[in-house]
Design a protein around this nucleic acid. Structure first.
Lengths: 200, 200
DNA sequence: ACATTTATTAACCATATGGTTAAACTATTT
DNA sequence: AAATAGTTTAACCATATGGTTAATAAATGT
């Protein structure tokens, strides 16, 4: 571990605590403890809990969005993008297991605040991809489908396992090893499933 | 609205508040207000917040599980079960929009407690369905696939939209009407997608 | 070296929150 | 009708929690 500025320490501790416990469950004292500083420092660098939360949310949002944009705004084919996104997203989330759930949770609980982000530059923006899907449909490369439904299928199949980990593992009776194996398999299986359903 | 016993009032109020705000975000006073009774009554009928939460969790779990079991333990074919489950689950969740997210959230935050339920009678138990899938594979009716992966696809495609409503609507830029329309379409589209991927 | 700004802490404070209690009110029993 | 048991409330209580303050320590500028 390298020396970090106090402000960075605080943000990292806040990320850790907020992502695990959410806004309502997080405690300022716990964040201070994890950052190994006095609680007053939190308010010195970040005015209050809400502001600190917003910094954490912004960081999470900014970390998450590129995984959608990079893939979707590249100049690859629809098929290639589906393959690339699945692999890149599952790998990313396996390294950041709390992130999708945190985002989903806080967006649901704080829709108006979250909508500030969806308007912005950094927001995931699949519009170009949606257009591309329509173009490939017109060209006869893929079968007709609502681009938004295709995207929703892609997001659902990749993300749900991580958001609902506990429920999934409980119902399907999966230990951690089996779960991870399945996630690796899904990197191949999901694109196959989706591409197969739209290719002519 | 019919007259309900105070205990029922409390449980209903608790369901409403806990499902929207989760264990950490829920306030005993808010539950009392919603039930229109004195806060002390909560402790009269339910010892403490934890116990009240557990009653709510149990109710949610018991309400949710049959939608999996009824379909999966019927004597229909795999194809028919996929069709039935999708329709029944999406309809159910559109009427109970907070339920899946609440369960997922609290199972994630309280794995050991939740595991008490996964062992029990009422737990969603897809083992018979998994065996049926293997049988139909052997009989050559459907293509080889890990039954657990098929189930995970089914759960993902049906549930994710409701768990990540805010994120989905934000990214895909959906108003409430369009979202609902898409959910209706998915009752048809999801079984098509899944059946098509496994039928020979 | 001295002054000034910046960073950090211990001790506090106000309020929110889960929980308790004693009294009152309402059936129910005898 | 009196006694008993069950239900409900207002007022409290202890603690947790977010936030502040005043004093101190460390860094920076002159």
């Amino acid at each position: 571990m390298k020396d970090q500025s106090t402000e960075e320490n605080i943000l990292n501790a806040a990320i850790s605590v907020f992502q695990k416990k959410g806004m309502a469950g997080a405690r300022m004292q716990e964040i201070a403890d994890e950052a190994k500083i006095n609680k007053a420092m939190l308010h010195y660098y970040y005015k209050n809990k809400q502001k600190l939360f917003e910094a954490v949310f912004r960081q999470a949002f900014e970390k998450f969005a590129p995984h959608i944009n990079e893939v979707f705004n590249s100049d690859k084919s629809v098929f290639e993008k589906i393959i690339k996104f699945t692999d890149s997203y599952i790998s990313f989330v396996m390294e950041n297991p709390y992130l999708p759930n945190f985002l989903i949770q806080e967006i649901n609980n704080n829709t108006e605040f979250a909508n500030l982000f969806f308007g912005s530059e950094i927001a995931p923006n699949p519009i170009r991809f949606e257009k591309q899907i329509e173009e490939e449909i017109e060209k006869g490369i893929i079968k007709p489908i609502d681009p938004k439904q295709l995207l929703l299928n892609l997001f659902s199949l990749t993300a749900f396992s991580f958001v609902g980990t506990g429920l999934v593992r409980g119902i399907l009776n999966l230990d951690e090893k089996k779960f991870k194996t399945m996630m690796e398999e899904r990197k191949i299986m999901i694109p196959e499933l989706l591409i197969n359903s739209i290719k002519k």
